[in-house]
C-alpha cells in the first residue's frame, strides 16, 4: 500500500519536472509547481501512515496542510504575476520571456 503511494509520488515528481522543461504556457508551469507540491504532500501522508499504521499521525499531516496552504499563497502570487506578464508582454508563453539573459 505505502509502496504504491510512494512510487506514485515519485512518479508525480518526475511528471512535474517534465512539465517544467517541456511546457511553455505559464499557467502550465504553475500547475507543475502544484503537482510537485502535491507529490511532496503525498509523500508526507504516506510516510505518516507508514510510521504509525492505523493511526492518524499529527505531525506530517499538519505539515501537509501547511504546505497546501502555502502552495495556495504561491499560486496566488504566481497568477498575479502571470496577469502582469500578460499586460507587459502580451503573451503567456514562457519562452518569450527571454529578455534577461547573458
Amino acid at each position: 500500500m505505502y509502496e504504491a503511494i510512494l512510487v506514485c509520488s515519485v512518479a508525480l515528481i518526475a511528471v512535474a519536472l517534465y512539465g517544467f522543461y517541456s511546457k511553455r504556457h505559464m499557467i502550465k508551469m504553475v500547475i507543475s509547481v502544484e503537482i510537485l507540491v502535491n507529490a511532496a504532500n503525498l509523500l508526507l501522508i504516506a510516510f505518516g501512515a507508514y510510521r504509525a499504521p492505523g493511526y492518524v499521525e499529527l505531525l506530517p499531516q499538519s505539515l501537509a496542510i501547511l504546505s497546501i496552504s502555502s502552495a495556495g499563497g504561491v499560486t496566488a502570487v504566481a497568477l498575479a504575476l502571470i496577469l502582469a506578464v500578460y499586460k507587459v508582454y502580451g503573451t503567456v508563453d514562457v519562452r518569450k520571456l527571454r529578455r534577461l539573459r547573458g
Binding site: L17, F20, Y21, S22, K23, R24, M29, V94, R95, L97, R98, R99, L100, R101, G102
Partner: peptide
C-alpha cells in the same frame, strides 16, 4: 560562460532536473 544564462525558464528547470 555568459551563454549559460539562457534566460529560458524551461532550460533553467532542465538544469535543475539534470543536476538532481
Amino acid at each position: 560562460s555568459r551563454y549559460l544564462q539562457t534566460g529560458s525558464l524551461n532550460i533553467n528547470m532542465y538544469q535543475v532536473s539534470i543536476i538532481l
